[in-house]
Design a protein around this nucleic acid. Structure first.
Length: 475
DNA sequence: TGAAATGTTGGGGCG
DNA sequence: ACGCCCCAACATTTC
């Protein structure tokens, strides 16, 4: 038996990898990665440079891990639906195994491949803890409320421990050429490496998990919301690329932390991840339109000036600007800052959440359609179990609560670094002398707010309730 | 996984 | 002693 193991962005690892494990039951294993032009063409790759850097590092790490265990990674360029059947013919493989992924583009690849290969393609679950779609309400429908979903999740089934790690792999048949040199580098794709982007690969992922569990997990419940602290796991990009499996994270966290508040808070985030993936599988159309139909035709504004101010971090609201600059600077944004930022774009500036969603997807190292869409629709109020539309973050209060000393702002908005904590989240209220001592000339070194909070708040409330009211009457 | 407005309660100052 | 006002602290409602 000769088996092709189709590695994908989503399972770039060899540990806890069910398809690989299954392939080892046969004699020969051909690890394969496909360089889809839709993803790895230079122009496309550059549009998501942070993520691409992380993925390429992870791919090279995967190749090194395979090699270390006696195998190699075969790299093929072209469209999945053509390349894989060709590979199967060329190397006379008996079957192809892979993880099933929920993103619509990935699901489409699977459909096309299944049409070409029929029974010879075998897909395994593993992107999530329980297969998306497995949890249903009594009426057989997908859950639309997270707390209900989470309760069903707890009762559904126990979570299996990860598969034992693979010590050695069968040597690649001599006839098979690896073409490993085709694995691109950042340089080859014209991407300038950003040293602030996390290190990819399985080893780095495991190290991150261990360090989190050892140093920060105990205080996770309280610290996770603090934008100025490193209180979170930073595993988001790993979970997207699959350099660690969610099952490994779950099992290790449970083992290390026991039955504590921190465990619950952390694992609950993983359940949110389950929820977003399930939602995307059941309703892939959320990627193009609001989950809640009342939000169809919402009167968003087109305001290029406001958009640019938001995207570049020049709105005059320090926390909002810090988060915009953190995104561009390191391809990551603290979750709390994401929420504040998304709330500001959609509610204060009345700009379509889809524009923010696309911007995040472009720059985030952990950009993932399911998670990113769910986050943005949650903030806009249009999503599945979203916050109510009238919940509007006050960026000043959020800053004071979750960046009490202002150090998050100081890090990303250096022109305000010398302002005392008292004024750092609302520099426009600072006395002239305080501003002067801090070297801040409002309107020159740092902008005045592009919109006044109270005004923006009531503007959104009025516009939203008017739209939703009309909508409700019509439907 | 809000914020702001509004309502309630209770202590203290004061006439 | 009592009512009245103020206001902080907290609770509830509304957006």
């Amino acid at each position: 038996m000769r088996t092709v193991v189709w590695f994908r962005v989503g399972d770039l690892r060899i540990s806890d990898h069910a398809p690989l494990r299954s392939a080892l039951d046969g004699e020969e294993v051909i690890p394969l990665f496909v360089l889809e032009p839709d993803l790895f063409a230079p122009a496309r790759a550059r549009k998501q440079a942070h993520r691409m850097q992380f993925w390429l590092d992870s791919l090279h790490a995967l190749e090194a891990n395979l090699r270390q265990r006696g195998s190699r990674l075969v790299v093929a360029k072209g469209r999945t639906r053509e390349v894989i059947p060709r590979t199967v013919r060329q190397w006379k493989a008996d079957r192809v195994v892979a993880h099933r992924l929920v993103a619509p583009t990935e699901a489409e690849h699977e459909r096309q491949l299944s049409a070409a290969l029929g029974e010879r393609l075998e897909l395994f679950e593993g992107q999530t803890l329980h297969p998306p779609g497995a949890l249903r309400t009594g009426g057989g429908k997908p859950y639309s409320v997270f707390t209900r979903f989470a309760r069903a999740f707890d009762r559904y089934a126990s979570i299996d421990p990860p598969l034992a790690s693979v010590r050695s792999l069968p040597r690649l048949a001599r006839a098979v050429t690896t073409n490993a040199e085709a694995l691109p580098t950042c340089k080859a794709l014209g991407i300038t490496r950003n040293p602030a982007v996390l290190e990819g690969g399985e080893r780095a992922a495991r190290k991150r998990l261990r360090e989190f569990l050892r140093k920060r997990a105990a205080t996770y419940a309280a610290d996770r919301d603090r934008m100025d602290l490193e209180g979170t796991s930073r595993l988001s990009a790993d979970l997207v690329a699959g350099t660690i499996s969610v099952r490994q994270v779950w099992t290790e966290a449970e083992g290390a932390l026991g039955d504590t508040d921190a465990t619950f808070a952390f694992l609950n985030e993983l359940v949110w991840r389950e929820f977003t993936h399930s939602t995307l599988q059941d309703r892939p159309e959320v990627l193009s339109r609001p989950f809640r139909p009342q939000f169809l035709g919402f009167p968003w504004r087109t305001d290029e000036v406001a958009w640019q101010a938001w995207a570049r971090g020049q709105t005059g609201y320090p926390v909002v600007d810090a988060s915009a600059r953190q995104l561009l600077g390191e391809g990551f944004v603290h979750n709390r800052a994401r929420m504040v930022s998304a709330s500001f774009l959609t509610k204060h500036l009345l700009i379509d959440y889809r524009r923010g969603e696309a911007h995040y997807l472009e720059h985030l190292t952990d950009g993932d359609p399911a998670q990113n869409n769910a986050g943005w629709q949650w903030s806009a109020g249009s999503g599945c179990d979203a916050q109510p539309h009238f919940r509007i973050f006050n960026p000043v209060l959020q800053g004071q609560k979750f960046d009490p000393e202002g150090n998050y702002v100081r890090r990303w908005v250096p022109e305000l670094a010398r302002l005392p904590a008292r004024y750092i989240h609302h520099p426009w209220d600072a006395p002239e002398v305080v501003l002067r001592d801090a070297g801040v000339r409002l309107g020159k070194d740092y902008p005045r707010p592009i919109v006044e909070h109270g005004y923006a708040r009531s503007r959104f409330l009025a516009r939203a309730s008017q739209h939703l009211e009309t909508r409700r009457k019509r439907d």
